[in-house]
Structure formats: structure tokens, C-alpha cells
Design a protein around this nucleic acid. Structure first.
Length: 186
DNA sequence: CCCTGATTCGC
DNA sequence: GCGAATCAGG
């Protein structure tokens, strides 16, 4: 694959939209995220949303002559007066921890969960990996354990069941199809 | 472990 | 110019 105008265009657009290099790579196909990043750099759009001039303070590379002689010049040489305005809000990089509609589960409470499931869950929670929010990925169980308002709060973090947001045990209690539901024939 | 972008350097 | 390998960080 080569960087045709179309592909470069797509790359530029997606990059400016904040897409990650790997996402762009997947979208374009035929390239790896490294290729994308490399191209991004070569194009000079490593960062910035709207072409930020950002004067690269061309350091005139002072001719460090240093003639050792008494230089009668003013002692205060404001050369380092960088027009640094104010560190405005940086890049609005958005990283979705929890991709899409992967609703956090309702804590097992007054739900109709099979006793066995609750049992295994207890077991699982004992050796949960206690991951923090940042450590969650698409492959870690996102089942919350503890009180979100307290300090004793973490996520299960065990390996998930392909695709699902939770580990096997938690999937069991999260997605209770409608088996144990009492027959509508009440 | 999974991911992110940044850099380097042989091709 | 290209991108794999590597680095640095979360």
C-alpha cells in the first residue's frame, strides 16, 4: 500500500478528529499504526487541531564568542522573552475507556439472580484484580466492586469473555436472559 | 496486560 | 519517504 492522496486525506481528517493511530490504521487497511504515526509526523501534523503557528522560537544559536572582555551591554538582556500567552486548554484528546453502550451493571441487589451465580461471584471478587478506571480495557471485566463513593472501589479486571464487558462469572449475573424469570403465567 | 503517540534508523 | 522496532507513558 502507498500513501495516495486519498489515503493521506483520510489520514489527516481522522487524525484531526482525534482518532487514534491504530484506529486510522485499521480504517485505511494495509498499514500498521506505526506507519500511520510515521506518516503523521512526516506530514508535520503530529499535534494541534487547527494549524497552530506556534513560533518555534528560532534560537539564533548565540555565537558563544564570549570574548571574556567586559561587555558594557545592558545586564538585563530579555532575550528569553517567550511570548508564551497562557497554557490554554491543551488538546481535547478524548479516550473512551468504555467504548460504546456498555452500560455499567446494576449492583446485584434485589435482582433475581441465581444463588449459584452469586456464589461464584463472591468467589471471583475475592481474587479480583482490583483495577482502577484507567486500567480497564476492552478485555478486562468492568464489573464494579465496592462503593463508588468510598475508597474501597475497584473493578473486577479479570479476563473477559470474548466480546462481553465482563468476566464469565459477572456475565452470568449481568446478562440473565430470562430463564429464571417466573413464567408470565403467574 | 492492554493501549497511546514519539523517535530512531535501515531500507 | 517509508515503517518496524523501540521507547516512554497511562
Amino acid at each position: 500500500m502507498s500513501w495516495t492522496d486519498e489515503r493521506v486525506e483520510r489520514l489527516t481528517k481522522m487524525w484531526n478528529e482525534g482518532q487514534s493511530a491504530s484506529q486510522i490504521a485499521k480504517d485505511l487497511g494495509g498499514v500498521t499504526r506505526n506507519a500511520v504515526i510515521g506518516k503523521v509526523h512526516r506530514l508535520g501534523l503530529s499535534n494541534r487541531t487547527t494549524g497552530e503557528p506556534e513560533p518555534v522560537a528560532a534560537e539564533p544559536e548565540p555565537v558563544a564568542a564570549e570574548p571574556a572582555a567586559a561587555e558594557p551591554s545592558a545586564p538585563e538582556e530579555p532575550v528569553a522573552t517567550v511570548p508564551e500567552p497562557v497554557e490554554a486548554a491543551p488538546a481535547p484528546r478524548r479516550q473512551m475507556i468504555v467504548p460504546a453502550g456498555q452500560p455499567l451493571p446494576p449492583q446485584p441487589s434485589a435482582n433475581e439472580i441465581s444463588p449459584e451465580a452469586l456464589e461464584t461471584v463472591r468467589e471471583v471478587e475475592k481474587n479480583a484484580k482490583r483495577l482502577s478506571l484507567m486500567e480497564l480495557t476492552e478485555r478486562t471485566c468492568k464489573w464494579p466492586i465496592g462503593d463508588p463513593a468510598g475508597e474501597n472501589f475497584w473493578f473486577c479486571g479479570l479476563g473477559v469473555q470474548s466480546g462481553k464487558p465482563y468476566c464469565e462469572a459477572h456475565v452470568g449475573v449481568a446478562f440473565q436472559p430470562m430463564s429464571s424469570r417466573r413464567d408470565r403465567r403467574r
